[in-house]
């Protein structure tokens, strides 16, 4: 059964997209901005993990923690310096600033670490599990498991903690939440921190699946994840999760059954068709939990 292994591989790729899309959708829900630099935070995370493993020969969990730490700090710093002064500006101005940040990160990485691609060491064992007649690599299973864990933790955090409810309040009405004594600036910083931390996790999974690290590696997964977030209904956390998974499955199926080269075209064509049927994405408006 080839179908089953394609499906699981699709879920694996979709999990990576979902984790990245969560970052997009959270930032959109709270700050109402499209953070185009999100994809480049992934790239920074991958480089940090790469150097932690090869140069400082840290064990994998430590490298992952280093990547998460650096990305989180980077996300918060970028928000403070580039986005916070534009809180009152039009969304297009913020969008262009985010593009500027994206250029900055890409070209900074090119100067610091050269534009040639580096081979990411295989840290997750390359074994396989047989499920009936289909074989699935450990890496794919770990990716899917990570995505589920991230999703559960995030849902709990947003629904059960005080900060989480503050986030929900901010996404609904910033002015009213300010009057209720919520520090909106702090909440936005936390959102950027969480989104960037998730990007770091995604970066390590992505670099393990496609083992090369280069300055523009984040842009294509970034665009796909953004698509996934819109697909599921931007601003909705379950939407980003579902959108990411579906996007991954469509991509792998298109590659397997139709054409490898045209797979991107097929993914985006399906997206247009779905938006025609459901103009606010799969789980748009229906979900009240918008963060």
């Amino acid at each position: 059964m080839q179908f089953l292994s394609y499906l699981i591989n699709g879920l694996g790729l979709g999990s990576v997209y979902a984790i990245i899309a969560l970052g997009y959708t959270m930032v959109y829900g709270i700050a109402k901005m499209l953070n185009f630099a999100h994809g480049d935070i992934i790239m920074v995370g991958a480089y940090i993990a790469f150097f932690a493993i090869t140069k400082f020969s840290l064990p994998f969990p430590a490298a992952l923690m280093a990547a998460i730490l650096v990305c989180t700090v980077l996300g918060v710093v970028i928000e403070r310096l580039a986005y916070k002064p534009l809180r009152q500006a039009t969304s297009l101005a913020v969008l262009i600033t985010a593009i500027g940040v994206s250029y900055f990160l890409q070209n900074g990485a090119q100067i610091l670490w050269s534009s040639s691609s580096k081979v990411f060491p295989s840290v997750i064992s390359s074994g396989e599990i047989r499920l009936g007649s289909a074989s699935v690599s450990y890496l794919t299973l770990i990716t899917i498991a990570t995505c589920i864990v991230v999703m559960i933790c995030l849902t709990l955090f947003i629904n059960k903690t005080k900060t989480g409810s503050a986030m929900r309040a901010c996404s609904e009405d910033k002015g009213a939440s300010m009057l209720m004594g919520i520090n909106v600036n702090r909440i936005i910083s936390i959102t950027f921190a969480i989104g960037s931390g998730l990007a770091a996790i995604a970066s390590v999974l992505l670099a393990s699946t496609y083992p090369s690290v280069y300055p523009t590696m984040g842009s294509m997964p970034g665009i796909k994840a953004f698509t996934a977030a819109v697909f599921g209904g931007i601003g909705s956390i379950p939407g980003a999760f579902v959108g990411g998974l579906i996007l991954g499955i469509i991509e792998i199926f298109a590659k397997a059954y139709i054409s490898t080269q045209l797979s991107d075209a097929i993914v985006f064509a399906v997206l247009i068709v779905i938006l025609l049927i459901k103009p606010t994405g799969l789980l748009g408006k229906k979900i009240n939990v918008k963060v």
């Binding site: 499209l34 665009i223 953004f226 698509t227 819109v230 931007i234 985006f268 064509a269 997206l271 247009i272 938006l275 103009p279 606010t280 994405g281």
Partner: peptide, 8 residues
């Protein structure tokens, strides 16, 4: 949503 269609 329109922006994403043009991107696609």
């Amino acid at each position: 949503y329109l922006a994403i269609v043009t991107l696609a």
